[in-house]
Design a protein around this nucleic acid. Structure first.
Lengths: 192, 192
DNA sequence: GAAATTTGTTCAATATAATGAACACAGCAA
DNA sequence: TTGCTGTGTTCATTATATTGAACAAATTTC
């Protein structure tokens, strides 16, 4: 969204579609008829509370009145060879492959984690609201978040919040492979 | 969304997370420091234009400031045995295991797809904005979306929009296994 | 320690969102 | 024609969002 949203036309479109009159919408929403007219012709900058009332009166969600720009559809193919070089985490024995391309960073990221025997991968807390989805492809691992430990074996799936310190550990004598998805609810950006 | 949104706390949370001061955010957004303070303490009903400026200054989308508080934190462990029975798709030869629990349906869903040799899985268009993330765990598959076909081999990763008719096909003579994540951008809601 | 800088908060003034009433223009009935 | 009922638009007033400056409290600097 590059420009301030043009809510006026959206509201009018939805109102027309439902064959509602300004008087009726005014009654249903609690917003004066005059205000509705001025908003629809983009003559004023309405308050979010007012727009919310209108959305309620129309029976739609607030998001529907704000311009939801479709945004460019993305399609990324990452061949195994083009894949970004494996990261080393300082902790030895863990190989991290980033499957998702850089353009998706901060939105949703996909990794393959390869654990040697007897090694672990600690993680700092991510941004609040972030979630991780683990699928064990080979071997078994122990996931500890806070004071909560879960043991996972091949084929198991785990979804958990990761805004606290957490660690993934392979305590067994054989290697383990984990598919991991990190999803950021609100995209983060550079620090000051 | 049943009550008018509490944008104040959301704005403050994001600003704090990025260690931004009111002065800095004021410069970046073009909204006065005084206004920012009052908005964060929910003392006024800001204009949509103002909130949009703030979102721009924070580098986030307008939706992120209006979003209702992120519900209860979830943690799901799905053992391989407890996993929902494999779905049959009508098309023979494709086994679909749903890793993510029912509570996550419509938000983000995780599957393991097992393809026998020479079989395919067609899919109706999902909701607009939906994306799929494929990781090939074994074998190779061909993904066709619209008139666009991509060939993937073991270890490859693919991210693509799936609001059009698309199909995943295993043309080879050996079975294939695919890890698939479906992510719905806007939660769908009831029509009027 | 005191002064200077930075934090976020309130204050009075201004710009403007929001309102109810009056308005203009339609279609429709006598 | 003359009303009459409904549409959406402007008008004058009120309510309030927004601002720059002044403010107090915490932190840094000398």
């Amino acid at each position: 969204m590059e420009n301030p949203p043009m809510i006026g036309k959206n509201i009018q479109k939805i109102r027309m579609r439902n064959s509602l009159t300004l008087n009726v919408l005014s009654e249903r929403s609690g917003v004066s008829k005059a205000m509705l007219s001025q908003i629809e012709s983009d003559k004023v900058n309405p308050t979010v509370a007012t727009v919310w009332k209108i959305a309620r009166g129309l029976g739609v969600d607030l998001q529907d009145l704000l311009d939801v720009e479709a945004g460019p559809k993305r399609k990324f193919v990452i061949n195994r060879s083009e894949m970004s070089a494996s990261l080393d985490t300082g902790e030895n024995g863990v190989m991290i492959k980033v499957l998702s391309p850089l353009e998706m960073a901060g939105d949703i990221e996909v990794y393959i984690l390869q654990f040697d025997s007897k090694c672990s991968l600690p993680s700092e807390p991510h941004y609040s609201g972030t979630e991780e989805y683990l699928t064990v492809l080979k071997g078994s691992v122990k996931v500890t978040a806070g004071n909560n430990t879960t043991e996972l074996h091949k084929g198991d799936f785990l979804a958990y919040h990761c805004d606290i310190f957490h660690t993934i550990e392979n305590a067994s004598a054989s290697p383990a492979v984990v598919h991991m998805v990190v999803r950021y609810y609100q995209q983060h950006h550079q620090k000051r």
